[in-house]
Each structure stands twice: as structure tokens, then as C-alpha cells.
């Protein structure tokens, strides 16, 4: 255990949150991340019992989620405390794979809708240039958002997670919040 106190990606001890009409935005500071890449000729593992998904998709089981990020490469996410060494945990689950710690590298913003899919769909069309089918529930994508490279995970019809690099957390939050605010004004 460390006696150092972590900050959230947005720079405060507590996660940032806001509500904009039907939408709520919440910084998720308890998401541990590690990337997994297959070695040449290596078999595809099933860490935490998860089938690693194909392009444009994610799989979740309990508190662990696997997201396709590139050929032979996935990002795994799990609910953990900030000091947890999730990469070590994953390494044990996927022997023979290249594992890299990514927890601190990302800022995760969870966006929830109180009125179903529509507000999230409207929000997404202001943010990312992907057809709706690419981000229907169960789908995930890495794409550009306001000059940032992000992962967008459509957890369900009314829940969405957006991950952007942690150093640009403020810019990511601004982009998401401004878009949500404009939708609210229309609603």
C-alpha cells in the first residue's frame, strides 16, 4: 500500500461529474487498464474467462472488459483501486502475451442517459464521424474526437464510455460537456 494520494485524471482528488438534461457525465477513476498483444504465432488467450473480441467490438464479463484495439491487440479494463497492479494480474491471466500497463494513461468519462438511446445517439453524431451501427450497444471504436484519439464504448443503449489520453483529460471533458450542454438547450 502506498501512502501517496492519487489524483483523478482531471486533476482533482474527486472525480468530476455533471448533469446536462437527460445526460450525466461522470469521470470514472476506478478503471484499471492494461493492453494485451499477441506474440508471433501465439494462441489467443481467454483472460478472466473472456473471449477476446474481434474488430469494432468489446466483451465484458463481470467487472472486466476486453476491447479490440488493433490486429492482435486488446485493451483490458477492470474496476480496481488506483494503485492496483492490473498489468501484473493480466500477465498471470495471459502468459506468453505482451502486457503493458495503461491505467494512468487514460481518462474515462462515463455518459449515461436517463431517457434511452436517443440523447446518446444525438451526442455521438456531434462528436465522432462513425455510422450509428458502429456504436450501437455492444460495439466499440477507436476514432478521432475533437483532434483527440479516443476509445468509445457503447456499454448499453443508455450508457457510453469515452476514453481519451489522460494528459488531455481537460480538453476531452470540455468537448463532451459542451456537446451535452448544446443538446440540453435543444431538448
Amino acid at each position: 500500500m502506498t501512502d501517496l494520494t492519487p489524483l483523478c485524471a482531471l486533476g482533482a482528488p474527486e472525480p468530476r461529474r455533471t448533469a446536462r438534461g437527460a445526460l450525466s457525465l461522470t469521470e470514472n477513476p476506478d478503471l484499471a487498464l492494461a493492453s494485451l498483444a499477441l506474440r508471433a504465432g501465439g494462441a489467443q488467450p481467454a483472460p478472466f474467462g473472456l473471449t477476446l473480441p474481434g474488430p469494432g467490438a468489446f466483451n465484458a464479463s463481470g467487472e472486466v472488459l476486453a476491447l479490440w484495439t488493433g490486429p492482435g491487440q486488446w485493451m483490458l479494463a477492470a474496476e480496481r483501486s488506483p494503485d492496483a497492479d492490473f498489468a501484473a494480474e493480466l500477465r498471470a491471466q495471459a502468459p506468453g502475451c505482451s502486457i503493458t500497463e495503461q491505467t494512468g494513461g487514460w481518462c474515462c468519462v462515463e455518459i449515461a442517459s436517463a431517457t434511452g438511446a436517443a440523447p446518446l445517439d444525438r451526442l455521438l453524431e456531434k462528436l465522432v464521424n462513425l455510422p450509428p451501427a458502429a456504436l450501437c450497444p455492444g460495439r466499440a471504436a477507436r476514432t478521432g474526437l475533437h483532434h483527440l484519439s479516443v476509445f468509445v464504448i457503447r456499454r448499453s443503449t443508455d450508457r457510453l464510455a469515452v476514453l481519451g489520453m489522460s494528459s488531455a483529460a481537460g480538453s476531452l471533458w470540455h468537448a463532451l460537456d459542451a456537446a451535452a450542454l448544446r443538446l440540453e438547450s435543444f431538448a
Partner: peptide, 13 residues
């Protein structure tokens, strides 16, 4: 054909 994997970790540390 080289067995090598790359990933950026600039922001992770």
C-alpha cells in the same frame, strides 16, 4: 515477421 509489439505509454507514467 519480427516478433515485436509496440504501444505508447507516454501518458501512463
Amino acid at each position: 515477421d519480427l516478433d515485436v509489439q509496440l504501444i505508447s505509454t507516454t501518458d501512463a507514467w
